[in-house]
Design a binder for these strands. Structure first.
Length: 614
DNA sequence: GGCGCGTGTCATGTG
DNA sequence: AGCACATGACACGCG
């Protein structure tokens, strides 16, 4: 009964190696080492059962002890803090029930008879009773203990009081002054108690198991998740850096335990350190806080009359009610978690599994198209298998679709901001698309708007069928990338058909545009060619007329010269030749002959003689 | 209401 | 054969 049932069969070295191999194979899929660890699961299961059984006892005992504790406290009128009554005489002196020896303190405490093991909360309560001033347990325990012990700090605060801000509850100012070597020594001895170790180091009771898988699992967890979350926004729960104060080892050990251990009523004495506070300490991102814990927190606040500031985000769907460990696993698998806005400190819902994308990203499931009726008619089944479209929410045609999607995702956890920014992202154009045809005066760029309207038809079809890509992507991606995208997403037949149609139409549209552009370019080219040809024609005609004129002039000169030469020719009798009877002809070799015209051609050709001008 | 223009889409041809 | 692209033809909306 003292120990959690250690499994009879400890994993052999071979088993551990096999587990290691399997885990390394699946680590990319988000599988954690504990998945393969039967011992771990058995222990966790047993621990959960035990915690449930102890819960009722524990709560009742806790109230009584807190009541007793409050009796030992008095309100410091100067600082407004509750301090132990004996402190007036010595800061480092433990309260009356305690003795100088911390071990004696423990021995004086009434342990539950018949239950020789202490629960974690019991230990914390014990610490609170024993060392009311040593609230800064996280500091004392350093990295060996997560900030959980710090929650006992607030057992000093009357639970009936309205929960003050955590900062005001911070006990650090007191501790810093009053902690000393003696206190540290006491803590160290206290820490060595087997009950405490049993409670706080559940994983340590099997060194073989711990050393077997922790070294491999820690880095992954650390780098894959927690260190990327906006831990800086976490409430100050007494530790410096939540990451440091809450090592992933510890988170691993408790993440699967505490989501079932969270009680519907205050366990730590302060509402702020109920499940929500606990989650805030570990997982500043509320999405990582188990919904059960949140609900429990709501319940406890209702009971105490204090309504916590709950994020006005839509109710989480069935997915979001998964255990914390599951959510963490999803976060590990979801790289998007790394790009979330670290300033928000609010639920970003990094995993589409955790809740439906429609709900988680846009809250109202409108995809941001608040005025789109057809969108409202869409079937937003949170549990549908198609809810895995983490990037399907940007079906507009902005070139930075994904950036906006990422932005939208990153802002999804801020309900108010989301309401404001959503229209900015999507309303402008849809407003034109949906209402532009029936309302409003026409503008100069109506043509462009009409084009957008036509574009939006495919967009709306894509939305209706919940195509997880933008029309731009479908149309413009290279073939290989497109095919790869198709293979990555399991689309049903109508979706595939629509995607193909969208791509075909988009391609053809671009082709038609190019074709018309080429046609226009051809027309312009032909017109230019026509102009140049016309100009050339005019030039040629001018040249032709000039050539004709020149030719006529040369002909005239030639006839003049001919007559001049002919007139100088004389026959044997000294008479000039009649131009009507003779003509001058020139051979190819340049010789000139006087040739009788027609009827005397033969006779003259026989006795022709070279004409001599001389 | 007809007309011209721009655009999307389909059917078909081409490489 | 399958694919992407080109192009003619048609429909539609708009000024």
């Amino acid at each position: 009964m003292m120990d959690i049932e250690v499994p009879d069969i400890l994993p052999s070295q071979q088993d551990m190696e096999l587990i290691d191999i399997l885990w390394r194979q699946d680590v990319d899929l988000g599988a954690r080492r504990e998945v393969f660890d039967q011992n771990h699961r058995q222990k966790v299961h047993a621990l959960q059962r035990r915690s449930e059984q102890e819960e009722e006892k524990k709560q009742q005992r806790l109230r009584d002890e807190q009541k007793a504790l409050l009796d030992q406290l008095q309100l410091d009128e100067e600082t407004g803090e509750y301090i132990p009554k004996p402190l007036a005489s010595g800061a480092l002196t433990p309260p009356p029930p305690a003795t100088a020896n911390p071990l004696a303190v423990i021995q004086n405490v009434n342990f539950p008879e018949g239950d020789d093991s202490l629960s974690f909360d019991e230990c914390m309560q014990l610490l609170a009773e024993t060392f009311p001033l040593a609230e800064d347990t996280s500091a004392c325990l350093d990295s060996a203990v997560p900030p959980v012990p710090s929650s006992d700090t607030h057992s000093l605060t009357p639970s009936k009081q309205p929960a003050p801000p955590l900062a005001s509850l911070s006990p650090v100012p007191i501790i810093a002054d009053r902690r000393g070597p003696e206190m540290d020594q006491a803590w160290m001895e206290l820490w060595s108690l087997p009950e405490l170790q049993h409670c706080l180091n559940l994983q340590m009771e099997d060194p073989l198991e711990t050393t077997a898988y922790l070294p491999t699992s820690i880095p992954d967890v650390q780098e894959g998740n927690y260190t990327y979350y906006p831990l800086s926004n976490a409430p100050n729960v007494g530790g410096p850096n939540p990451v440091e104060a809450c090592p992933p080892t510890f988170i691993n050990a408790f993440e699967e335990v505490f989501h079932d251990m969270v009680a519907p009523e205050p366990m730590m004495g302060d509402a702020n350190l109920g499940p929500k506070g606990f989650c805030d300490a570990f997982y500043p991102d509320p999405v990582l806080c188990p919904p059960e814990a949140v609900e429990a927190n709501v319940m406890e606040h209702k009971e105490s009359g204090i309504l916590p500031e709950l994020p006005k985000k839509p109710p989480l769907n069935a997915h979001s009610h998964s255990p914390l460990g599951e959510a963490l696993e999803r976060c590990k698998q979801e790289p998007m978690a790394e790009v979330h806005d670290s300033d928000s400190g609010v639920s970003l819902n990094p995993s589409p599994h955790a809740s439906s994308p429609e709900k988680s990203v846009y809250g109202d499931g409108s995809f941001g198209f608040s005025d789109s009726d057809d969108v409202d008619d869409l079937d937003f089944n949170p549990g549908s298998a198609e809810s895995d479209y983490s990037e399907m929410f940007s079906l507009n045609f902005q070139p930075d679709d994904f950036q906006q999607s990422a932005l939208a995702l990153s802002q999804a956890g801020q309900p108010e901001a989301q309401q404001d920014k959503k229209p900015k992202l999507h309303n402008a154009k849809p407003a034109e698309e949906e209402g532009g045809q029936s309302e409003g005066p026409f503008t100069k760029d109506k043509q462009k708007r009409r084009s957008e309207v036509r574009l939006s038809r495919d967009e709306q079809r894509a939305r209706a069928l919940r195509i997880p890509f933008t029309v731009d992507m479908i149309t413009n991606l290279p073939v290989d990338d497109f095919n790869e995208l198709m293979s990555k997403h399991q689309l049903n037949e109508p979706q595939l058909a629509l995607v193909r149609d969208i791509r075909r139409r988009g391609k053809n549209k671009v082709a038609a545009q190019n074709c018309r552009k080429r046609k226009m370019e051809n027309i312009v080219g032909l017109e230019y060619e026509l102009d140049s040809l016309t100009e050339e024609k005019e030039l040629l005609q001018t040249e032709r007329s000039q050539n004709g004129s020149s030719l006529r002039k040369m002909k005239h000169q030639l006839s003049t010269l001919y007559l001049q030469v002919f007139s100088m020719l004389r026959d044997e009798e000294g008479k000039p030749y009649s131009p009507s009877d003779y003509s001058l002809q020139q051979t190819t070799d340049g010789s000139v002959f006087l040739v009788p015209r027609t009827k005397k051609t033969h006779a003259k050709s026989k006795d022709h003689k070279p004409a001599s001008a001389d």
